[in-house]
Amino acid sequence: MVRRRTLFGQVLHYGLLIVVLAVMVGPLVWMLRVSLLDKTVSLTAQNLLSASITVANFTDLFAQSDLARYLFNSAFVASVVTLGNILFCVMVGYVLARRQTWPSRILFATVVIVMMIPVHIVIIPLYLICLKGGIYDTYWALILPFLINPVGIFLAKQYIESIPPSMEEAARVDGASELRILFRIVMPLCKPAIAVLAVLAFITNWNSFLFPFILTSSEDLRTLPVALALLQGHQAIDWQHLMAGSTVAVLPVLVLFFVMQRQVVSGITAGGIKQ
C-alpha cells in the first residue's frame, strides 16, 4: 500500500513520532543522566542539563556495595535458566511436534493451559515446596522451577512442526539414536527458534523480581532487581546511586535487545506471551 503524502502530512507524522519518542524514552534517559550526576548535586532540571558527567556513582557502588555480586547472581541465574530452557523446551517441543499419540496431545494441552494460569497464585505453595525441599535460599530455588517454561515449549513445538521430518527419518534409518538425532539434527535446524526462546528466557529471568525476592533471603543470593528494590528503602541511598544501580541492571538487557531485535520481535508476535 503505497500512498503519496503531502509535506504537511509528513511533518505532522514525524512530529507525532518524536513526541511519542520523548515520552517513551525520556524516563530511561533521565535514569542514565541521574546515574552520571554528581551525588552532591540536586536533581533539578538545570543540573541535569548543565552539570558535568561523572562515573563516580558506578565506581562507588562497585567498591562499597555488593553490586558485583548481584550482577553475578543475575547473570549466573539467567544464563543457567536460559541454557535449561534451550535444552528442555526443544526436547519437549520435539516430542510434542513429532508424536501424534494421545499422551503427547494431553501433554500439549497442559502446556497451553499452564500458559494461561496466573503464576502469582502459586507463590505460597512454591515457597513452601522450596522451604520443605531444602532449596529455599539457595541458587537452586532461583533456577529449578524456571528451567522449563510453557511458552518456550510452545515456540519450539510450532517451529519444529514447520520443518519436514525427512532428515530425522533418514538419520533414523541410518541407525542414529534419538538423542543423537535431537542434538545433531533437530537442534541445529531449530537455531532460529532457539535464538528467540533464549532471548526471551534471558530477558524474563534477568528482570524477574517476585520469585527471587520470596524464594531467597540472603544478601549473597540477591539478583539485581531484588537488590535494587530493597536498596530503595535503605537509609543512606541517594537517587544518583540508585539510578547507577538501575543502569547496571538495564544495560545488559538493552544491549541484548538491540543485538537480537529481530528474534525478540518474532518471538513476541509468534508466542505472544511474556510474563
Partner: peptide, 17 residues
Amino acid sequence: SAYFLPWVTSMVVVALI
C-alpha cells in the same frame, strides 16, 4: 525499537524511576 524499550526494562527499575 525505541517505543518497545520500556517493555524490556526491568519493572523494578521502571518503578524506581
